[in-house]
């Protein structure tokens, strides 16, 4: 048994035609049949709202509206069903500041150019098989930025509910 991507709708936002074609070819080979194409963040946002894609792959560097702005706009859409759509950011920017900016905008996965088919497949597999919980906070909406799931916590308990649980415990004793 293997993945069947034939029913998956992918929105591809890339302003360079050649790169758009290259990605489409590669996605076709991985079984994706339904690809929506946009050449900038604005067009991609409109297509996203109209078509409710299952995955978005967007380039960072697009004009006039870039990929980062697109991600921020999608994540800021309170109440929209597209708000939690998985987003893979495609970029040549691999330095720490760029990765942090993409992460803080709400990107799920980061694919650095030059990439190969294996890397593309790995990012798609990650969003299928290892989805992260979402965080809705005052200044952030998007996938949980902590990659490691530390279930055992040995530090001090400072939350209100921790205190309540502590009180309960005391009463029971």
């Amino acid at each position: 048994m293997s993945y069947d991507f034939s029913r998956v709708r992918v929105l591809l936002a890339e302003d360079i035609n050649m790169m758009q074609d290259l990605l489409s070819f590669a996605l076709n080979c991985l079984g994706v049949k339904n690809i929506l194409k946009a050449s900038d963040g604005k067009q991609a946002y409109d297509l996203c709202v109209q078509n409710n894609p299952d995955v978005i792959i967007c380039d960072w560097q697009m004009q006039p509206v870039d990929g980062l702005s697109l991600v921020k706009k999608i994540r800021a859409d309170a109440g929209a069903s597209t708000r939690t759509v998985p987003i893979i950011m495609l970029t040549g920017y691999a330095s720490e500041e760029y990765v942090a900016a993409a992460r803080d905008a709400g990107v799920n996965e980061f694919l650095v150019k030059p990439f190969n088919a294996e890397a593309l497949a790995a990012k798609l597999s990650a969003i299928v098989d290892r989805p992260r919980a979402y965080v809705d906070a005052q200044h952030y909406f998007g996938p949980d930025r902590r990659r490691k799931n530390r279930r055992v916590y040995n530090g001090p308990l400072r939350r209100d509910e921790d205190m309540a649980a502590d009180d309960q415990w005391s009463v029971e004793i």
């Binding site: 069947d4 991507f5 080979c29 497949a121």
Partner: peptide
């Protein structure tokens, strides 16, 4: 902050088992 899980619609659509090595190889050739 509210932390919540989102229904994995993508997984429901594609199933499991990963990509076939042959598909990845074809994509790489392109």
């Amino acid at each position: 902050a509210r932390i919540f899980d989102v229904e994995n619609k993508l997984k429901q659509k594609v199933g499991g088992g990963g990509f076939l090595p042959m598909s990845i190889q074809r994509a790489q050739e392109r």
